[in-house]
Structure formats: C-alpha cells, structure tokens
Write a protein that binds this DNA or RNA. Structure first.
Lengths: 204, 204, 204, 204
DNA sequence: AATGAATGAGTCTTCATTCAT
DNA sequence: GATGAATGAAGACTCATTCAT
C-alpha cells in the first residue's frame, strides 16, 4: 500500500502547512483578526481546502494549540525522567520550559494572547478541552513537588501554589523577552529564576 | 458657570455609565465578542450616543483600561508613601495589588484576557498608549527596589527582573483565584507570596 | 405620540417594501436561488437593513407566506358569512379562492413552488408553523361541508376527502392558468369547477 | 462484442445506482439541500465519478425525473390498451396512477417538492425538457377523453379541463397520503375518486 | 474508469460606524 | 445632545465542478 502511505503522508504534510500558516498569523493578529483568507493565502491554498483538514476555524486554532501543549508535556516528561536530584531537576524544568518557548515563540505569543480567553470564559467544547490540557501540564509539575516532599525540601505550602509561583515567574520573563523583541537567549534567565524560586520556596 | 458645571458633571457621569457597562461586557465576552449593541443596551443608551463620548470601540476599550491602570498606580503611590521599612513595604505592595484586583476583578479578567493583545502586537496608537501605562506601573515598582538597593537587601539582579518575578507570581495567583470562581479572599495569598519573594530575592 | 406613530408607520411600510421585493423574487427563483442580495437590491435597501426587520432569510420567507395565508383565510371567512345557501356557498368559495390567487398570483407561484418543501419535510419551526396555517384553511372548508351534512347534500365520504377533491381541482386549474401565462381571467373556471364538484359529490 | 456488452451493462448498472442514491436523497432533502457529497456517499462512489455519468447536478436530477415520467407513461399506455369500456378504463387509469406513486412514493415526493420549480419558472433546457414530458402524460389522458367523446359520455368541457380536474384530485389525495405517513394503501381511494369524477363529468 | 483533493465563487449573517431627524 | 435606522464591508463556511494521478 505504498500509494496509500504516500497519500497519508501528503495529507499529513498539507495539514502541517496549514498549521504553520495559522501559527504565523495567530501570532501576529488575534483570533478574530486573523482571517481564514489570510491563513489560506499564507498557506498558499484556497480557503475551501482548509475545511478539508479542519472542521472550522475553532478546530484549526485549538488543534494548533493542542499539538504544542502536547509537545511541551512530552518534552517535560523526558526531562523529568532524566534527572533524579531535585535540585538539578528544578533547574532543568525551568530550562526545558524556557527552551521550548524560546524555540516556539510564536506559540507563546498565541498562548499569551489567547490564554485568558479560554481560562476565564469557558464556553465551548474546544476551549474546555484546551484548558484541560493546560491543567495537565500544571499537574505534571505538581507531581514533581509532591514526589519530593519527603526530602523536606519545600516549604509547607500546597504543591499547586508552589508550581503557580514558578510558572508565574517563568511567564513573566518570557513575556518580557518577547516584548523586548526576543533579544538574546531566553534561557539565560534560567539561573536567576532557579535561584529566586529555590531560595524562595526552600525550607530554611 | 453653574450650568456649565452641571453639564460637565452630567457628561462625566454619562461617560462613566458607558464605561461601567463596557467593563461588565468585556469581562464576560472578549473584545470582539462584546458588541456595541450589547454595551449600549447594558448602558441603557442608544448606540449612537456612545460615539458622542468615545471616538470608537478601541477608544472606549482603552479608556476603560487606562482609567483602571491610573487608579492602580494612584493607589500604589499612596501605599508607597505610607510605609518606610522595606520589609513592610513589600508586603503592603503585594496586598495593595491583590486588593485592587480582588475588588476590581472584572478589570483583571479583561486585562488577563486582552493583555496579550497590546503586549505582544503593538499596532495602533491606543495600544501603544496602553502599554506605556503598564510600563509606568512596572517603573514605579522598580523604583522601590532601586531606592532600597543601598540597604543591601536585594540580590544583585537588575531591578526590572526582580519586579518581573514578583508581578509574575502575583498574576499567577490572581488568575488561579479568578478561574476557581473567586472563592475566599485573594488577599490571603499575600503572606505566601511575600515569603517566597522575600527569601527568593534576599541577599543571603 | 405622533412621532412614535409616524415611526411605527414608517417601520411597517419599510417592512412591507421588503416583503414585496421578496415576493417578486421568490416568485421568480426558488428559495435557495433568490439571494438576499437580490432582494435587498429589489427593495432598494442594503442587505443589512433586511436584518433589522427579519431575523433571517427563513423568517422573511415564512412571514411572507403567513401574511398571505392569513389574508386568504380572512377573505374566505367573510365569504362564508355572506351566503347561507350551500349551493351558492360552494360557488362563492370557489370564486373567492380563484379570485385570491388570480390577484396574488406571485404568491400562488411561491406556494406552488415551495409547498412541497414544508409539506413533505417538516424540519424546522418555521415550516411547522406554516403547515399549521395551511391546515387551518383546510379545516375551515371542512367545516362548511360538516355544517351542511344534515341537509343530505353530500355523499357519505368524509369531509376532508370532499374538501381535498375540491382543492385538488382548483389547484390544478390555477397551475394551468399560471403556466399558460395568466391569459384571461382565472375566475372563468369557477363555473366548471363548481359543476364538476357539485355533481361529483352530491347525493344522487 | 461480449466485452463491450458487459462494459455497457456495467455502465448502465452503475448509472442506476447513482440514480437510486439520488432518488433517496432528493426525496429527503430538496434539490439544493441534497448535496453531491451526500449522493456520492449514498451511492458508495466518489463524487468525481458521478460526473462520468451525468453532465452535472441538474442533469442527474432531471434524468431521474425523466426516467420515472417515462415509466409512468409506459405503464399508462399498457393500461389503456387493456380496457375498452370507458367506464372501466377510467377506474383503471386512476388505479394505475395511484398504484405507480404508491410504489414509487419517493418519486412522488420529489415531484411534489420540485414540480413548482419547472412548472412555474422555465429557465433552463433541462427544465423545458422536463415539462414537455409532463405534458406528454397529460396529452395521453386527454386522448382518452377525446376518443370517447362520440359516446356522449363526457360533458362538453374541453378535454384538457376534464383531465386537469381528474389529475388535480388524484394529486390532492396522494399528497394527503404522503403527509399522513403513507398509512394504508393509497389505492383504496380509487373508488371515491372514480365516483366523484364520473358523476362530476358525466353528461346528465 | 475511478478517485478525491483542490478550487473559488457565492451565501448568509454580523457589526462598527454614520447621519438625518 | 440623543436617537436608532441604515449602511456596507468583511467574515465564516459551503458546494458544484474540475483535474492530476
């Protein structure tokens, strides 16, 4: 079935092209301002074709997001398996997170622009699915804290709060880096974040 | 000029009614989904009237934001003048910020939903003005750090980074509180944020 | 409230203009082929304006139909009150029906073109409402038969069947007249229909 | 030429499959609402293949109709040859017509739904062809009347009118039967229609 | 012959903005 | 100043038709 395979591959690659075009546009304009005409033009496809690959604009948008959240979660999972020492682990978590968005800064822009939309107003199914993916990521990090509770490493705040503190800082620096025009490497901030977080949350 | 005064006052109050209606709707929907029809109806005014008070939808939106950022800055200024001791000051800064958004959670929702729009993609004038207001707030806090550098209180990271770390954490908890349905008082988080921030950024 | 009255009247007349334009176009093309652009242009209005008077295309279409069915029922009611003698009554019923569609032949075209659509496939609410209006008309005529049953005038077939026979013939001739280009007066057929129906359904 | 024959036969059967799928769908939806995608799926064929058998959607639709009108005409011709006595003949004509649509009620639904389209607004060639087929059927029945004029059986109305009266009644009952959900046999109405028509059109 | 991916014109509908009253 | 009717540009989505494989 080589023909079928090829067709399958072509379909997948076409889908990817659309997602790439969409990524570019959603990073520039916001959801409502990026039109399907724009996206089709950027993908060098006709508008109708997009509907062969995605049910509608929402589907396209959330597929894009989902893919990337999944990608980030995968990457983070790998990191978590590689390092045992909690100290190192935290640094690596920060680096992985920053690294991912340094590389995929378009996606960060989109998440940053649209996140509020599905966090605050959960109306439709797509958004609900989306937010669950996000929460999955938080959960993953929460477990890291939880698993290292015994070591007496962290203060007695609940794990979710500890994770929120970390994520909050990371996002803050990422935003800053994006707003400043992505100058230099975002990863250079890892050390500082690590330091502040570590001393901030460590049992004295 | 009592007549003029009254006219002036009436005009201002009308304007405020529109802003209130807009606040309610932008907190529920998102910029593009909240229509001027909605807002006019909520303000119990005709759509055309809105254009007598605001140049267009963008102007209405950014006036709303601007008012509140100014309000927050005012409030923060007062706080800063009241407390001299850096230790106490930091706690009070956190409390003031959390307190403001606990009270004005509609505005936080809007900022949270729309922030990305003017932070990441600065296209039009309104947005540029907006972002400057935000930066003004950051500057204000930066100065607090700067003014207490001599005391050897803070680590040698640049002041902006220290502020970003703090703001990032605060936002993270505020988002969490909003998403969780504003249960309890947001201010209860002040202590924890203070603790983490303080130990995280303090010179050992 | 003369101003309100005038506004009311203007609104009603505008609505009527739209209905007239719609009538013209639905008589020429079918529901799907007559576009809102066409209708707006014929009404010398912008497309958006139509939506100030009708919820959507379906609403416009069914309002048009409803108005006319109601009009026909009204007219028929008046006829029924004027004549007591069953013999005359039947002739007048036929004349009224033919007269109505001779005058409103656009509407007959539309009903004839679209009737099947809501008779056979009753999906949406509008269509359900529509068909009920039609059935109301049939009911009205059934009652005429029923009320004259005692006189031993009609054969013992159920009233609905008797009415269906009559309506069937009337429609057949109206269609023929329309297809033939509305030449001459449709009402000239009354006598023949009356004759065939009367002798066909009369008790021997 | 056995190969050619087989190919011929296969082609014909494929064509028929498409027509059957189309019949099913046009009976459910209406010309514009039944899409070629639907039809292709129902026929278990690719959309493109339909275009190898039919010029376009109109062609498919009218071929379907044409086939059936031809079928009805054939059937009626056979009936007409079997019975000599005008009395019996009329009953048999009614039974044949009702029988055909009882069996092919999908087709009746379609004709009922779409008839207006080609009867009232004759625009394109397909439709013109269609209407001529219909008129051919009327002509056939007209000839029956004409051929029995000598016998002094029918009133002196023109034959077309007499046929229209008959067809009108038949259609009226068929519609009723379809709308009522095809309960019982439509043919049971033959007697009544025959009775009303006979006495209605018979010379006294 | 058969496929089904691609097309793009065409449709309904929405909504910020204007303007006569 | 206030109104709200009218506008029309713009957007998401559909679907008959074509064509390379």
């Amino acid at each position: 079935m080589t023909t079928l395979d090829r067709r399958e591959r072509e379909r997948a690659s076409r889908r990817q092209e659309i997602l790439n075009a969409a990524k570019m546009l959603f990073a520039q304009k916001d959801f409502h301002e990026a039109t399907l005409d724009d996206i089709a033009e950027a993908a060098e496809l006709s508008k109708g074709t997009i509907y062969l690959y995605f049910k509608n604009k929402d589907d396209l948008f959330f597929s894009l997001m989902e893919n990337h959240i999944i990608g980030l979660i995968e990457l983070m999972r790998e990191t978590l398996q590689k390092y045992g020492d909690i100290d190192t682990l935290i640094l690596k978590v920060i680096e992985t997170h920053l690294g991912y968005f340094e590389k995929n800064n378009d996606i960060f822009k989109i998440i940053h622009t649209e996140r509020g939309r599905f966090e605050v107003n959960i109306k439709n199914e797509f958004r609900k699915k989306m937010i669950n993916k996000f929460l999955g990521y938080i959960d993953l990090l929460e477990k890291v804290i939880e698993d290292n509770r015994g070591s007496g490493f962290f203060k007695d705040y609940d794990s979710k709060s500890i994770v929120l503190a970390l994520i909050g800082m990371i996002n803050s620096f990422t935003t800053q880096w994006i707003m400043g025009g992505q100058r230099g490497s975002l990863k250079t901030k890892s050390g500082m974040i690590y330091d502040i977080f570590l001393h901030g949350t460590k049992k004295q």
